Simulated assay, not measured.
Amino acid sequence: MVRIADVAKMANVSTATVSRVITNAGTVKKETAEKVLEAIKKLNYQPNMLARQLRRSETKTILVIIPDITNTFFSNVLRGIESVAIENDYQVLLGDAQNFVERETSYLVTLGQKKADGVILLTARTNQEVLEELSEEYPVVLACEYYEGSTLPTVSIDNISSARKAAEYLISLNHKRIGHISGPMNVVVGRDRLKGFHQAMAQHGLAVDPHLVQEGDFTYESGFNLMMKFLTLDRPPTAVFAANDEMAIGAIKAAKSKGLKVPEDLSVVGFDDIKFSSIFEPALTTIAQPTFEMGEKAMELLLKLINNDELEKNQFILDDQLVVRDSCMEKM
């Protein structure tokens, strides 16, 4: 099947330019439009009429798909999205995928029902090829999660380098036996944070005990249960890096339930800097993501796509920050 990207490649223009020609937006030079029309003719390209109709019929609503509405990390991202949406007279329709790919995909089907002008996904678990094909006819932006090697407009942090930073902080405190409670391996941020952990350990010549790397699911319960598993080992870790704050807090609660003190007996680093991480005792050392700014940028990109404006670039990597609090201590 011929796609809009094929037309753009033959005409040596962007897909946005092809879209403007197809929708007769009137903002394309005559010579460029003729090249595009010639490519359409040669390739016998048939535009998706439903998507074209949807693009012309504004709803002033955008859809945001979130993997798990109970995960407090996403609340500030949503606020960032909504702040830009409201400024531009858009409403936000929220879809909770509940960590099910099928549910995520079902929300995307609603795009063909003229209920939204574009979609921001805070999850990247739908088949990549399906989403990329959809994005050729419809405004799609990814935030927080991403596809490796994709050209979809994306806003995120560098999860590998930020995880490496977290692990290196523990190493700087003279910890050598460090455990990692990872995120799910079917989620790109889970895999990338695990990569960052391994890189930090390798760069400092530290061996990774396979028993000290366990896969969690970003919930408090998995952090608690996997920390309890660590504590059954003959040589438990002296420090733990958890791939999000909820699991880190679960790990600390597990350690306390066994009579250990944090950070005196165990140092713990989390990831995300959710609000509760600074309130919890001890206050959690963590990697802070610029969540509000992520949401703002994602909505700004989506508006450009809706308006058929050219993007200056497709991938935006925002800065993260190591926030040092009270959950870590130097190992003597």
Rank of each mutant, 00 (worst) to 15 (best):
D309P: 07
L152F: 06
I287P: 13
L322T: 09
F74V: 12
S277F: 10
H204C: 05
V84C: 08
Y147E: 08
T27D: 10
F276D: 07
R3D: 12
Q289A: 11
G295E: 06
S135E: 00
R3T: 14
L206S: 05
V323L: 13
D265W: 02
S75P: 02
L108H: 08
G216D: 12
R56V: 09
L152E: 07
R235G: 02
A167N: 06
L284D: 01
S277R: 03
L43Q: 02
V119F: 06
P67R: 08
D272N: 10
S162E: 15
A143I: 00
K114H: 15
G259P: 06
M49D: 03
V323C: 04
I69R: 07
R56C: 06
L318M: 05
N12G: 13
I160M: 13
K195A: 05
L94M: 13
T110W: 02
E137I: 14
Q91E: 01
F280P: 01
A39T: 05
I157E: 11
V268G: 02
L194W: 06
G149E: 10
E168Y: 04
G80I: 03
G205T: 12
T219H: 15
R325F: 15
E281F: 14
E293W: 01
A251G: 13
T285I: 14
R20H: 05
D158S: 10
I69F: 15
I22T: 03
L284W: 06
T105Y: 08
V109L: 13
L108Q: 08
P67K: 09
E102C: 04
T70W: 03
I86G: 03
V324I: 15
D319T: 13
N308L: 15
A283P: 01
A143Y: 00
